[in-house]
Simulated assay, not measured.
Amino acid sequence: MTKQLIRTTQLKGALTIGLGSILGTGAYVSVGLGASIAGESLIWAILLAAFTALCNGLSSAQLAAAHPVSGGTYEYGYRFLNPASGVTAGALFIIAKSASAATAALAVAWYVNSFFAVSEWLIKASAICLLLLLTIFVLLGVRRTNRLNAVIVAASVLGLLVFIGVAFNTSVNTSAVKAPVASGSLSVFHAAALMFVAFTGYGRIATMGEEIAEPRRNIPRAVILTLIIVSVLYIMVGLAILHMGRIVTFDQNGFNIANLMNDSPWQWLVSLGGIVAMSGVVLNLVLGVSRVILAMGRRGDLPTFLAQLDKDSKSAPAATWVTFLVMAFIALTGGIESTWTLSAFTVLIYYGITNIAALKVSHEERFIPKALSVVGLISCAGLVILAALA
């Protein structure tokens, strides 16, 4: 019998994992990137990404409740579709989320660089050191990781609320230089495709289905609550950026919303919030990707030694170390913009498979209508095609 991870995570823990996985690169970097692409249509891009995320999140919740094991759509593909779909989903998840983790780690390093001017190679080294540190936290067990998540989420939200408060108390700077913003009719879809990946931290809740207590009740609730909270915060941050009148060209190595507050004494607090938030994203991505690698090791799609658990069945050491190596390689060889774009397109394809699998859940196990999964599938395919044409 395959050794299983212990169900120690309750609704509160699942919610903090979801928030900790999202409130980082999305709020502190991606909204600004979306503004540089969509301009005044930024809010529409956020709403479109949020709607797509809601449909996909409910499909993920449906699958996780019906088949609550670690591995996410990798396992769902096997269970509800066929082995090829499962392996494809697993590979896409590892690529997409490793790229997201590398993006977040590099962004943290560049945030720190806003205080201390250091060389680019040292920034890369700092990103890899961050990945190593948070990998060790994951190996200490998910219960301890949940405690850290709560602190990370609180700091992340505080930084965002300070930014929003300062922004709306700042007079509109009509003399600020605005960089040219894409004006094509498809720019909002391009921005939405990149913004979508900023919502997908809810997937970490599903990939940890084996560790969440009462999964049929807690997983759907955690997904929905996570998306509601994040959508409200993203919209508020987007409105704050537009209010400040400082839409700037995205600097792939250095953009952060704190850059828009150069004349504010609160800039340091927003920068600190960004550093903590994106560290939380890395932490949860290490956790999520390692669980997919664990699942692939169990089935033999990856070497079987990756399926080994520690003696307390609270962590998967081999899978977690391989996760670190993949993320460190991407961070070493890529930049923020390229890794974020790679993550966006691969994760949209991944969730396309998720929606197809959700359509196969039996009527007895279903709690969402099939129409939601159909809309989610169309949304994913549409964003990939329209963003590519933009």
Results as ranks from 00 to 15, higher is better:
Ala27Met: 12
Leu47Tyr: 10
Leu332Thr: 07
Leu242Met: 05
Ile212Gln: 01
Ser171Tyr: 09
Ser156His: 11
Ala388Ser: 15
Ala240Cys: 10
Thr323Cys: 14
Gly57Tyr: 03
Met195Lys: 06
Val142His: 08
Gln308Asn: 15
Ala154Pro: 03
Phe189Asp: 06
Leu287Cys: 10
Asn253Cys: 08
Asp310Glu: 01
Leu92Val: 04
Gln267Tyr: 08
Ala381Phe: 12
Leu130Tyr: 12
Phe115Tyr: 12
Gln308Trp: 07
Gly288Pro: 09
Ala167Phe: 06
Ala38Tyr: 08
Ile37Glu: 12
Val153Gly: 09
Ser271Tyr: 04
His363Val: 14
Leu225Arg: 08
Pro83Leu: 03
His67Phe: 08
Cys129Ala: 13
His363Met: 12
Trp266Cys: 08
Ala192Asp: 02
Arg217Trp: 01
Ser126Val: 14
Gly254Ala: 11
Ser36Phe: 06
Ile94Cys: 01
Phe189Arg: 12
Val347Thr: 10
Leu139Ala: 03
Val375Trp: 12
Asn146Glu: 15
Ser264Ala: 10
Gly90Glu: 03
Asp310Ala: 00
Thr174Phe: 15
Pro180Leu: 05
Tyr202Glu: 02
Tyr350Thr: 04
Gly39Ser: 06
Arg221Pro: 05
Val361Asp: 00
Arg204Gly: 11
Ala66Lys: 00
Leu227Val: 01
Pro265Ser: 10
Ala150His: 07
Ala371Gly: 06
Leu285Arg: 04
Ser264Cys: 07
Ile6Tyr: 09
Ile257Met: 08
Val361Trp: 01
Lys360Gln: 13
Val375Gln: 02
Met236Tyr: 11
Ile6Gln: 14
Gly77Asp: 02
Ala381Gln: 10
Val188Cys: 09
Lys311Tyr: 13
Lys97Phe: 00
Gly238Met: 07
Leu58Thr: 03
Gln267Asp: 05
Ala27Phe: 06
His190Cys: 03
Ala357Trp: 01
Val166Thr: 14
Tyr74Cys: 03
Ile6His: 12
Arg79Val: 00
Leu19Cys: 05
Thr135Gly: 05
Val29Gln: 12
Asn218Glu: 09
Gly201Val: 01
Leu54Arg: 00
Ile247Asp: 05
Thr170Asn: 10
Ile164Phe: 09
Ser185Gly: 10
Trp266Thr: 09
Val138Ile: 13
Pro180Cys: 04
Leu294Ser: 04
Phe305Pro: 02
Gly20Gln: 07
Ala107Lys: 13
Thr25Val: 14
Phe137Trp: 08
Trp266His: 13
Leu342Arg: 04
Glu337Ile: 12
Leu325Cys: 11
Leu269Arg: 14
Leu227Thr: 06
Ala65Tyr: 01
Arg79Phe: 01
Leu377Ser: 02
Ile94Ala: 01
Ser70Tyr: 03
Ala179Lys: 14
Ser185Lys: 13
Thr135Ala: 04
Ser126Ile: 14
Ala102Lys: 05
Leu306Arg: 09
